[in-house]
Each structure stands twice: as structure tokens, then as C-alpha cells.
């Protein structure tokens, strides 16, 4: 669906490239994440894929269309939620959605159903200036789905959300994926990348350092050990056991039969560990 080769980009007259030779592809129906610290080039990459920034070098095509040749019809089938919620603050949530829905030639979704899906049905007639940051983020997300997009771009989609709404939004993103949409997410939130993305690209200083699925990365960079905590009388014992031939490991069998196990964890790496190890940078 998206094919990018040797992408370079510099802002204005800046002699230094913000993006330096990015090459990647995003398949149909995939949730692809750009993961990196602030200023790494995630949003810039997304703005190029959306067609906002067009003075780039390299090749970018979406559904076989070279983005240098796109016209406004391109936007009939894509949905975008920017990091900063961009909404008419003196208009209500419903008025905002109804206004944007008028620009699409093909059928659009019912704005009230979208508002209900993100828990904003009771605020449909409230002006956006009275919304909290989290409410604006949810409304912004609704707008990106108005036109039943085949390709969705979400820039930091969960920023400012409380845990309940975070889960709600994650479920909605996965629902869009199950409908067959391709979703491109930029985030610096490991949990979001881990939960939602089929593949992630680690991006630092305008370069992609690694692309793989979160699961594969965590396994590759982890250790094949189990960490256990169990009670022996009043004592709490912590131990580690190799996961190789676990079924025949006598110590493991003994602990299982003899003691009360309180915790048991496999020692795969966290996505954050992999990021730090691969890029030498933290995500903040």
C-alpha cells in the first residue's frame, strides 16, 4: 500500500536533512508504528505520507500513486488525526463533524455514532472550547474516521487520554484494522506501539534504525529465563530458571509441586529495552 524509498527532507532553508534516507513499506491492512523520541522525524514522515510536505527527495507512493502527482481526490479515502487537535472551538462537537463530512463525495459515517463510540454522545452539543484535552483528542479521532477511510494516519493518538479512554481508543483502532483499514501511527508511547502495531520502525535523528514486529523484537532481545517468586515457609524465594527443556527441569518441577508460587514471568525484553539497546537513545 505504501512504498517509500530513500526519503530525504529538510525544512525551509535548513541545510541539514530532518529525514535521512528512509526506506520502508506498509502492507495493506497493517498497523504500522513509527516509534521515536520527540524531534526524531516521525511526524515529518507522516506529513509527507499525507501529502502535506511535498518538497522531499526520494520516492513515495501510496496505492501505486506517486505522491508528487496527488490531487485532492486522494483525501476521499484517507483519514488523518493530527497530534494537536485542530477543531473549530466555537462550534459544537457535532457541528465540527457535520461540517467536515460535507467535503466527502462518498458516504460518510453517522457523526453521532462516532461520538457515541468514543463516549462523547452527551457532549455532542457542547462547544469544543469547553472540551478537555482528552475530549478533543477523542473528537479528533472521530473526524479521522468520518469518511470510512481505507488508510488512517494517527499522530500520537493517545496523548492526553485517561486509562479508560485509552483502552477505548485502542479497541476502536483495532476495530478499524479488523475492517481492513491500513493504519499508520506515530507515537513515543511503548504501550501503544506494543498493543496496536503489527510492525514498528524505530526512528532516531531522521533515520530508521530497525523495523520488525514488537513480539519478534521482544523475543530476540530477551533472555530465555523464567523469574519465579515462591514461598518456603515464611521466606520469599526468588529464582531464575532456563526455559530450555523446561518440562524436564527437575528444579522447576520441584518448585511447581512443592511450593506456593506467587509470581512467574518470562524474561523477554520490553520494547523500550529494545529501543534503548538498538538506538542508544531513550524515548523521552
Amino acid at each position: 500500500m505504501i512504498e517509500v524509498k530513500d526519503l530525504h527532507f529538510a525544512y525551509g532553508s535548513n541545510p541539514h536533512d530532518t529525514l535521512r534516507g528512509l526506506t520502508f513499506h506498509i502492507d495493506d491492512g497493517e498497523v504500522f508504528g513509527f516509534l521515536g523520541p520527540s524531534g526524531a522525524g516521525k511526524s515529518t514522515t507522516q506529513k509527507i505520507l499525507i501529502g502535506i510536505l511535498n518538497r522531499y527527495r526520494g520516492t513515495v507512493s501510496v496505492n501505486g500513486l506517486n505522491l508528487q502527482n496527488l490531487n485532492s481526490d486522494f483525501y476521499e479515502s484517507i483519514g488523518v488525526a493530527f497530534e494537536t487537535p485542530n477543531l473549530y472551538t466555537k462550534f459544537t462537537a457535532l457541528e465540527n463533524l457535520e461540517f467536515f463530512a460535507q467535503f466527502y463525495g462518498s458516504g460518510t459515517r453517522d457523526p453521532m455514532q462516532l461520538l457515541t463510540a468514543v463516549g462523547l454522545e452527551e457532549d455532542a452539543h457542547t462547544r469544543v472550547r469547553n472540551f478537555s484535552k482528552g475530549m478533543k483528542v477523542r473528537l479528533n479521532f472521530c473526524r479521522s474516521l468520518l469518511n470510512n477511510p481505507k488508510l488512517i494516519f494517527l499522530d500520537e493518538p493517545t496523548a492526553g487520554l485517561d486509562p479508560v479512554n485509552l483502552r477505548k481508543l485502542e479497541a476502536l483502532i483495532l476495530k478499524e484494522k479488523s475492517r481492513g483499514s491500513t493504519i499508520c501511527i506515530t507515537t513515543h508511547d511503548m504501550h501503544v506501539a506494543d498493543t496496536l502495531c503489527d510492525r514498528v520502525a524505530f526512528i532516531v535523528d531522521g533515520e530508521i534504525r530497525l523495523i520488525d514486529s514488537p513480539r519478534e523484537l521482544k523475543l530476540q532481545h530477551g533472555e530465555r529465563f523464567l523469574d519465579l517468586e515462591y514461598r518456603d515457609g515464611t521466606s520469599l524465594i526468588c529464582t531464575s530458571i532456563s526455559m530450555d527443556k523446561l518440562g524436564t527441569n527437575e528444579i522447576f518441577q520441584k518448585i511447581l509441586y512443592k511450593y506456593h508460587i506467587e509470581t512467574i514471568h518470562s524474561r523477554e525484553a520490553s520494547l523500550e529495552d529494545v529501543f534503548v539497546k538498538t538506538t542508544g537513545r531513550s524515548l523521552q
Partner: peptide, 9 residues
């Protein structure tokens, strides 16, 4: 708002 308007048709 201009950003969001220009990612529509």
C-alpha cells in the same frame, strides 16, 4: 484548522 481542511477533498 487549515491543516485539517487540506487533508480533506
Amino acid at each position: 484548522l487549515t491543516e485539517s481542511l487540506f487533508v480533506t477533498p
